Simulated scan of single mutants.
Amino acid sequence: MPKKRKTNRTSPKRAPRQPASALPASDRDEDWEDSEDYVSDVLHLDATYATPADAVKAFLDGVTVEWIGSVDGARMRHRVARGGDGREAIEQAVFVAGPLERMLVCAWHQAGPEGQTRMSEDVLAVLDVLQSAIRPVVEAEVRKFRPDYTAATLEAFREAPEPHGTGMPVFGWRTFHAVEPDTTWLEAIDTAAWNSSIALDNWHRENAIPELEPAPLANLLRRHDVPLVLCAGCGEAITDRHPRWTGTWMSLDSDGGALCALSLEPRSEPLRHPSPRFSWLTDNEFGDPHHPVACS
């Protein structure tokens, strides 16, 4: 089977992408020549609906109006939906991704049916804390170009597990943009919310957010009673309660799975066994299993 593509962690870090209206002329890419191109080339919503009000009319007629995609980060969704006040609005959502998602999925299995309801509430509390850390950073980035800008405050949410997903509820953050007759598509996009999708992948950022680094993130989850278990060797999130691998410590990795990545790295010279004389293979090819960090 094809190997899963790995993230290139040595590639140059990229700054968050802004709508062209937020950038000085000298910094604009040809692909982002103006704000309207940003909406057309990425969201494609205005290709069918000239304004958000037109999209709302279609929604009221039973049409699903939705864009799902990503740009150098987590999956996002823009759609017409009913907001908390019951009125139709443009929902802008960002879904969890990266190390956070991997930790949550393993912890979800580890919690088991008896603990998953409680964990679901705990995760929402964690997302509120993370949003408090992410929002000031992404807001400051936009203010370099728009000094009077104020980022939207995103709320944590969960939805039912999606078909063919991990089995865990879908978690993320979202905001709702009110729609008036003269509302434009650009007014229904919050730049900082968009850039927060990139914040979930610190490898792609110039200004990493400490709370999203693996160690602080793991500590935050544990403080909120999320049953996260990490491998003492490679540090990956692991679970021994996946239904197909009950009793075996597994990571969320179809390449390695039950193999601790640390065991696959070249051994230091004092620990390396002499090479066999006749075979290319050694017993080391079996690797070592994950083993959880001892609880203190």
Rank of each mutant, 00 (worst) to 15 (best):
A294R: 15
H44E: 14
S132A: 15
P24F: 00
L271C: 03
P276R: 07
G235S: 10
D54G: 01
A258M: 13
R77M: 09
M103I: 04
P12R: 01
L43G: 04
V137L: 04
G167V: 02
W185P: 14
D41A: 11
H224V: 02
L212F: 09
S196R: 13
P52K: 02
G247C: 02
L45Q: 01
T150H: 14
G83N: 12
P113K: 04
H164L: 02
V179M: 06
S275T: 11
R174T: 04
F286K: 15
P163S: 01
T153F: 05
K13V: 08
R118S: 13
H290K: 14
D37M: 05
A58F: 01
W249N: 08
P214C: 00
E121L: 01
E36L: 11
T191W: 03
G247V: 00
A156W: 09
D190T: 08
W173Y: 10
W67C: 03
T48E: 07
P136Q: 13
Q110N: 12
L271A: 13
G167Y: 00
V96H: 07
D122S: 09
D27Y: 03
C295V: 12
I209Q: 09
D288S: 05
Y49R: 02
A151M: 01
R28T: 08
T239Q: 07
V170W: 01
H242V: 00
H290L: 04
L212M: 12
Y49N: 00
M119A: 01
V179W: 06
Y38E: 12
V94R: 09
H224Q: 09
L212W: 07
E30I: 06
Q131H: 11
L104W: 02
S40D: 15
M119V: 03
I134V: 12
L259F: 05
P16V: 03
E159P: 02
P16G: 07
H273E: 15
S196T: 09
I209F: 07
D41G: 12
A192Y: 03
L259H: 08
D128S: 11
Q92S: 10
W280V: 14
W245K: 08
D31Y: 11
V71Y: 09
E285H: 08
V39Q: 12
E269M: 07
S40F: 11
G235N: 04
H109G: 02
S120Q: 10
L220C: 05
R158L: 07
E213C: 00
R77I: 01
A156D: 06
L252G: 02
D46E: 11
F286E: 15
R222C: 05
Q18R: 11
R174K: 12
A178G: 09
E206Y: 10
E155K: 08
G98H: 06
W245N: 13
G247Y: 02
T10V: 02
H290R: 14
L220M: 09
S279W: 08
A232R: 11
D288P: 00
E121P: 02
P24S: 03
L154T: 05
L60F: 00
F171T: 01
A133R: 14
L43H: 05
S197P: 08
R14N: 04
C234N: 07
R14D: 05
R244Q: 08
E88L: 10
